[in-house]
Simulated scan of single mutants.
Amino acid sequence: MTAHLGIPLATPYSDPHARAQDARRRVLDMALAMRRHGGDEPAHPQLGGTSPARAVEMFLALLQDRLPVWLHVLDDLLHLAGRGRVDGNLLPVARAGIAYYAEVQAAAMPAFVSPAVTVRFREALREAGLGPGVEIAPLAGYLAAEQRLGRVAPDVDPAATAALLLAGCFRHAYDEAFTGAARGVSRDEAAAGIVRGLRLAPDPAVLPAG
């Protein structure tokens, strides 16, 4: 089954440990590919004397640790279909997404000062199959499951809505990086606003009579 963005809707991993191991292996493959095709670029002053390739290695080391945890949060959603409230199920995901993106962005910003390294990273990302769809698919799968149960409005596009939630998390993390976490809304407030803005609830006027 595919969503409107052309992203396959997820089914839960039978073994969450296997999912985590697969994510770590893919990031490791990326690191090896970057090292194999990397050049000998000089250190950059803005990196404190570290080379761009070394900065990317440090970023990938963080990603290898954090990405499996984040994907586990997303994969677990599908098991909650039909339980609790949809917005209540999504709220911890939005909070976790903000925290994940804030940490990853902080490591990514100094890693991509070199256009050549950035191009190699994009190629390695594609080869490893770790594009945005890896995050969107399990979230879209959960929304589609809730939609089939009548708990999400029928006109909601699961994949587009999943992308919107993740984009909101990414944007808040991005804002924090420049304005500071102490300014503006808190992460909890931001997460609640992101979920509320999705407008997932079915119209009561069209719900079947109970």
Rank of each mutant, 00 (worst) to 15 (best):
82 G>F: 13
85 R>N: 14
85 R>L: 13
86 V>T: 09
88 G>R: 15
89 N>K: 10
89 N>G: 11
92 P>K: 01
93 V>C: 11
97 G>I: 14
97 G>L: 12
99 A>D: 15
100 Y>I: 00
100 Y>Q: 11
101 Y>N: 14
103 E>K: 15
108 A>R: 14
109 M>Q: 15
110 P>W: 11
113 V>W: 01
113 V>M: 11
113 V>K: 01
115 P>T: 04
117 V>E: 15
119 V>S: 15
119 V>W: 15
120 R>W: 06
123 E>V: 00
123 E>P: 07
127 E>G: 05
129 G>R: 06
131 G>K: 03
132 P>T: 06
132 P>Y: 02
137 A>G: 02
138 P>K: 06
139 L>F: 07
140 A>V: 00
142 Y>P: 10
145 A>V: 05
146 E>Y: 05
151 R>M: 09
151 R>F: 14
153 A>K: 02
153 A>N: 10
154 P>M: 05
158 P>Q: 11
161 T>R: 01
161 T>K: 12
161 T>M: 01
162 A>K: 03
162 A>C: 10
164 L>E: 15
167 A>N: 03
168 G>V: 06
170 F>W: 14
170 F>R: 13
171 R>N: 08
176 E>F: 03
177 A>F: 05
179 T>F: 13
183 R>G: 08
184 G>A: 01
185 V>D: 04
185 V>P: 08
187 R>N: 12
190 A>I: 05
191 A>P: 12
192 A>H: 13
193 G>R: 13
193 G>V: 12
195 V>R: 03
196 R>D: 04
197 G>M: 06
199 R>I: 04
199 R>M: 07
201 A>G: 08
